[in-house]
């Protein structure tokens, strides 16, 4: 195991209980790890939430974190991935002054170049959305800065793995079989 600090994504599935995020955050805190991105959402399975967290650390530490997460009673399963193992995206929203972008004349080209689109427009402002990596959403932000970005926010990153992996519902089915034994 090498000591290179890499970007890792931790993905965990938990019961939808109050305080689970606190449990997760505690484990990151204990290992002095910063969460550079976090996303927590309902999964398609009833009562199960999925949390993705991006952090920079060495592999030994990320393994410890994942094992200690999985040990938590309310957490069903936890995994970690390096960037090569995942397809990941985030969503960014940009609020820009409508008059400025209309005046620019080339907004269509910019949006096309970045695979971004306008999702709302009114007299005062226009909302542009873009899906991509942090670097890509940042590039568009830089591009739009000259119009004066009134508001900007990016979501936490979400991902799917490139590897064949047992779907969570199958794992839960196996668990239910243990119960009926």
């Amino acid at each position: 195991m090498d000591n290179t600090v890499r970007r890792y994504t931790v993905v965990l599935h938990s019961e939808n209980q109050i305080g689970v995020l606190n449990q997760v955050a505690n484990i990151f805190t204990r290992h002095s790890l910063n969460m550079s991105s976090m996303s927590a959402n309902a999964s398609p399975l009833e009562g199960i939430h999925t949390i993705s967290i991006v952090t920079y650390t060495v592999e030994k530490k990320i393994i410890e974190v994942v094992q200690q997460l999985e040990k938590k009673v309310d957490i069903v399963r936890a995994f970690y991935y390096s960037d090569e193992q995942t397809v990941y995206r985030e969503l960014a929203l940009y609020k820009v002054p409508t008059d400025k972008i209309i005046g620019s004349g080339n907004i269509e080209d910019i949006l096309q170049g970045y695979y971004a689109k306008i999702i709302e427009i009114n007299r005062d402002f226009t909302v542009i959305s873009k899906v991509g990596t942090t670097e890509e959403t940042q590039q568009l932000y830089n591009e739009l800065s000259r119009f004066g970005v009134m508001q900007f926010q990016r979501s936490g990153q979400i991902m799917v793995s490139r590897e064949k992996q047992e779907p969570l519902y199958k794992y839960l089915e196996e668990r239910e079989k243990v119960k009926s034994k």
Binding site: S14, E15, V73, D74, I75, V76, L172, R175, E176, V178, K179
Partner: peptide, 10 residues
């Protein structure tokens, strides 16, 4: 009823 199974806990 006593508990002997929690799906998220092995």
């Amino acid at each position: 009823s006593k508990c002997d199974f929690i799906r998220s806990y092995v």
